[in-house]
Computed example of a mutant assay.
Amino acid sequence: MKQIYAFEKVEDYVSFQAITERFSKRLVQYEYMLKEKYALSSVPKGIVWTTEELATTVFSTIPIPAYTNNEIIYMSPDLKAWRKLFLKQLEGRNLSYIQNFYENYSENHLFVILAHELTHHSDLFIDDFEVARENSIWFEEGMCFYLPRRLLLTQKEFEEITTVESELVEVFKDEYGNRPLDEFGSSSYRGSLASIMYDYWRSFLAVKYLIEIQANGNINTVFKHYHNWHNEGRKVPLTQYFELD
């Protein structure tokens, strides 16, 4: 993949050069893992490294400075900006453990976000970037977090992020949990940051449950059922097919 730097200031390029180089090298290794085990056959043409501001106001209006399309991954490597963004999603609630987690959000967790974007390009996912991706987007988004977290984080890091996002789902479920998970994608980027992230948190937790409880840790089994649901004509919502509440 080409490494494309889109910064307004030379100072920004210099400031983020080291982390972008570290991430680029690590992504090559992760790419190899996906090609070996998770049907990654083609990769984007490049990564556009940019600031949070440019990612969310110029290249896109999505309020999260990491996303991908069929050809390009856009990513802000600004760890401080990501920490502020994640603290914003708490909406002023007094959640000391979670606040401490995000105040110290690690480079390793940030790399998982980049790996998440590459994971979207796996051929194991049925829907193309060009089509309206609804009905099962929660599965793809949840899996694109589960795989890199399982493959790249330590067990302690994995358990910690699971605890944080489980608690956040509980905290915000009365406010944002009144829509079916299958509707993820119909209005994903409207509303507050917390309402947007709520669907990501519960998608990851749903996929984790499918793999670790229903399938006894067998990721391939879960993908097989997902493909069966599609091949049978998507007759019921995917959550119903998986017998999720």
Rank of each mutant, 00 (worst) to 15 (best):
R190Q: 10
K84Y: 12
F111Q: 01
R202S: 00
I137C: 06
H227S: 13
W49M: 01
L244Y: 07
L153W: 01
E31T: 05
A6K: 15
S192K: 08
F139P: 00
Y38I: 02
I98A: 10
L118N: 09
K25N: 13
S41G: 13
M143F: 10
D78Q: 11
D78N: 15
S188H: 11
M1G: 10
Y189V: 03
K88G: 09
K25M: 11
H227N: 11
D174R: 15
L153A: 03
G191L: 07
A215V: 01
T50K: 11
I4F: 02
I62P: 15
Q214F: 02
N94F: 05
L90T: 09
E159V: 11
N218I: 11
E159D: 14
Y38T: 02
L114P: 01
V14H: 10
P65T: 04
I62G: 08
A18G: 13
C144L: 07
K208H: 12
A6D: 15
E212F: 06
A132T: 14
L90R: 05
E170N: 13
S195P: 01
L114C: 03
I219M: 14
F16E: 00
Q155S: 08
R22A: 06
Y198A: 00
K37H: 12
M33I: 14
S187E: 12
D182Q: 07
K88R: 14
K224F: 08
R26H: 06
